[in-house]
Design a protein around this nucleic acid. Sequence first.
RNA 1: GGCCUUGUAGCUCAACUGAAUAGAGCACUGGAUUUCGGCUCCAGCGGUUGCAGGUUUGAAUCCUGCCAGGGUCACCA
Length: 628
Amino acid sequence: MDIHSIISENLLTNATELFGTEIEAKQIQIQPTKKEFEGDLTLVVFPFVKLLRCAPEQAGEKIGAFLKENVDAISDFNVVKGFLNLSISKGLYVDQFKEILKNETYGIQPKSGKMYMVEYSSPNTNKPLHLGHLRNIFLGYSCAEILKANGHEVIKTQIINDRGIHICKSMLAWQKFGNGETPVDAGIKGDKFVGKYYVEFDKALKVETSAILEEIEAGNFNSIDPSQVEEIKKLQAARDQKDEEKDQKAIQSKITEIVKNQTALMKETKEMLQKWEQKEPEVYALWQKMNGWCYEGFNATYERMQVDFDTLYYESDTYLLGKDIVLKGLEDGIFYQKEDGSIWVDLTDEGLDHKLLLRSDGTAVYMTQDIGTAIERKKNYPELKGIIYTVGNEQDYHFQALFKILKKLGFDWWEECYHLSYGMVELPEGKMKSREGTVVDADDLMAETVDAAKEMTQERGHIEGMSDEEKSELYENIGLGGLKYYLLKVDPKRKMMFNPQESIDLNGNTGPFIQYTHARIQSLMRKAGTIGDFDSNISLEEVELALIKKLVEFPEVIQEAGSNYSPALIANYTYDLVKSFNSFYQSISIFNEENEDLKNFRLHLSKKTGQTVNIAMKLIGVNVPDQM
RNA sequence: GGCCUUGUAGCUCAACUGAAUAGAGCACUGGAUUUCGGCUCCAGCGGUUGCAGGUUUGAAUCCUGCCAGGGUCACCA
């Protein structure tokens, strides 16, 4: 048992004697003592002041004296204001370190018997992955690993948005302009290839739209469906009455929207979607072919990222399930139907709005398939204790609504669903906009960081005697490690600034800094060979004690990272640990130490630090090399 | 406009969910090493935690108002 719990236990069991009443565990706040004060652990005494009916200082003295009397490990104490600083005997830390040494998987929690599902990535199959996806994917993967480390069984999954009007856009463009070209012909990755046609479509649509816009400005409405003509004329009149440019623009974009839907191209796309829903062989085959290309490309990207999935869900399967459930819900009076046939849910009693569930033409929307997917998952894995959705925070409202809809449908497990919402990744030059070509492509970015890592390592690394294969694996680990660490060290909830320069920088709070320390430890280990035992009576230096204290924290950090779904806690802990090690390494000689016990202790301490760094970095998907 | 969210050192981020004198890195300045990997270590500089009130023994953290960003309010996904 660690000293932390010993103190808590002691206070809890002796509460009546000490305070004259029972106390709760949460009243006991123990924290590491600030370095400007004498002591190792600090108990905050304010919560007990009222119980003891005396000034904070006296209360501290009283509790301190009591603890010193009852807990062997406490060698001394002092009170500063309302803070009771306890000095722990150093021998106890040595003993604790010996305990840690015995555990090869130190930090990993025992099996909990609980199962969780983590969804991440979930791309559309019409364009390649970008920087935003990187944060999503690394975050989801890491959370899954952290939950595993907390003893849970984890299913990694994604929902693949493989259906819908946007997919038909690239299909149609390929049919029109592709001339049967394949990714192999074009010499580019499948997902990039499909994305190229999605852009083609957009271009063609723009051309056609602006032609029609010119026509209607000239008073020619031949291209417009007669039922829409009045609406457009009304909007035009309204626009021309506005003085502010901003207002004019707002109305103009409405007009553009209507016109877009009147283009031959959009009409064709919609027809294609209908044909797809009816599984018309030619369209269906095209859909399968192009999605296949996309998957090939995605899989290559996932492989390079070193992430994987246990099972996949496809929107093309689940949207039908969702439809059935919505219709059933309508029958049961949970949802309601408007005159035009569209189906809605009223969430105003939950503090939300009305939400569309099925269009008037009976086709599915985003929400429809999400309902279907959630229920299907719970059906496939009834023992699930929670579903975690890794999705950007622009969808906070959507998931709030989804969970409340599940509640209305009577699924009590709605409370076990969690939206792991993360902030946007911003660039120094502003926002990423696909239309303005300021998107940072995932593959390109990975390639760039790996290249930078290669250059850096060739310049100053220790890579003599490595085969070419080992070398390129090393560059990969450093480049990707840096990238992952950079994206994960920030609290997921917050938006973050992505500075390409800094992600490549290998100094400071970065992945490569941690990797380097690990490599140096391994160098020590190679030199040391087998390490002998050491006596508990050794006397510790301050830096050694600090390092042990840091190691002691690890299991708690894993638990906290698990309950907060925050890889950032792991990343920042590892950085602290490594800094603490470097401080130790710098000021104390290991091999020149003549005392065998001390030398062995220091080697064990280094080795355990290395192991812990390895375990921690694995949890955020970063490999730590033995040499770099 | 309604709802959600953010505002901490020049920059990028912390702060154990209410505790002591708000901490790191980058940048800048100055030091250390005949030593086990200098991608190291130590020190200095840098703060009215957006502003104004309130609750509390105690507030970056909770409440109210204001200011400034971002998101969202689609028969898009």
